[in-house]
């Protein structure tokens, strides 16, 4: 907190904070307003006499209904959920085990291997999708959810591994040593002691992995083609932008509904999430 005169507090604290929050929240506000605004208002020219860009007096559900009645939106939601969940579970499982191994098992080149895994994360997706498309075609997985479920872990596993490796390193190794003296094998010590202690870290990487796959665009755009296989980001943008015509109402409705699950996941785990990122383990 800034101390001193009132004007100092406003200039250095309150006003910047308000600006920051405004910049962050305005797109969401715009999305919500547009979702509920009737078409008649949406396409009004800016100099029309009753032009009211930030509010509507005639809220409508027509765009949401349009999404569900005229497009495969429900199907896209299901696809996205299914793909994000399965690829997150796969990535977490591998990431936790790999992170533990890199952090705790003293095998030769563990450090180098950790760095190598991280480097694969740095390869941009915009390059990686080209060879991956070839692989997807060879395995005949194109236009199925599996084309994404199996390719998302290529960037999720390095990410989870790296995050979990850091988290495991922050857990005092005495906990595990004590468990092993207490009669637990290495595996049991991991299952009963280390993993429960690492739950905040696992949740954090799970949430981030889930969000990353939920919002992923390029792979979904390239590997999926038929309308009922698409995910929300690809479906909404490809079906609701026709040529140069933007269906702003349904577009924004789709974006709004698409961001709700992520928002729920975040708010639900936010406490664990924060402690996971700051890595607090209290003995």
């Amino acid at each position: 907190m800034i101390e001193g005169a009132l004007w100092r507090r406003w200039v250095f604290y309150n006003i910047p904070l308000i600006l920051f929050v405004f910049v962050l929240l305005f797109p969401f506000y715009w999305m919500i307003v547009t979702t509920f605004r009737p078409d008649g208002e949406l396409y009004l020219p800016w100099n029309a006499p009753n032009y009211m860009p930030f509010w509507t007096n005639n809220p409508t559900l027509e765009h949401i209904l349009y999404l569900f009645e005229e497009t495969n939106f429900a199907r896209w939601m299901f696809n996205t959920m299914f793909i994000a969940l399965v690829s997150t579970i796969i990535s977490l499982f591998c990431g936790v085990l790999a992170g533990y191994a890199l952090a705790r098992l003293n095998f030769p080149y563990a450090g180098g291997l950790g760095t190598a895994i991280f480097i694969t994360y740095l390869v941009p997706q915009t390059l990686l999708f080209i060879p991956l498309a070839e692989i997807i075609r060879n395995f005949q997985l194109g236009d199925t959810p599996w084309s994404l479920i199996l390719t998302y872990p290529t960037f999720l596993i390095p990410f989870c591994t790296w995050l979990m490796m850091g988290y495991f390193k922050a857990i005092p190794k005495e906990l595990e040593e004590c468990a092993r003296i207490d009669g637990a094998s290495r595996w049991k010590a991991m299952v009963y002691i280390i993993i429960p202690v690492a739950v905040p870290g696992i949740l954090s990487s799970g949430i981030i992995a889930f969000t990353l796959s939920w919002n992923e665009f390029i792979y979904a755009l390239v590997f999926l083609s038929s309308p009922d296989q698409k995910t929300v980001p690809v479906g909404v943008t490809s079906e609701l932008i026709r040529g140069d015509v933007f269906f702003w109402g349904p577009l924004m409705a789709g974006a709004l509904l698409g961001s709700i699950p992520v928002a729920i996941v975040y708010s639900f785990f936010v406490e664990h999430y924060v402690s996971g990122l700051t890595g607090s383990v209290k003995g």
Binding site: P172, E174, C178, R180, I181, V197
Partner: peptide, 20 residues
């Protein structure tokens, strides 16, 4: 012999209590 089979108990400097 692995630690679990030595029939010993150890008290650590940082106590190493299982926090959960």
């Amino acid at each position: 012999v692995p630690p679990m089979d030595r029939d010993i108990a150890m008290v650590f400097q940082n106590y190493a209590l299982y926090p959960h």
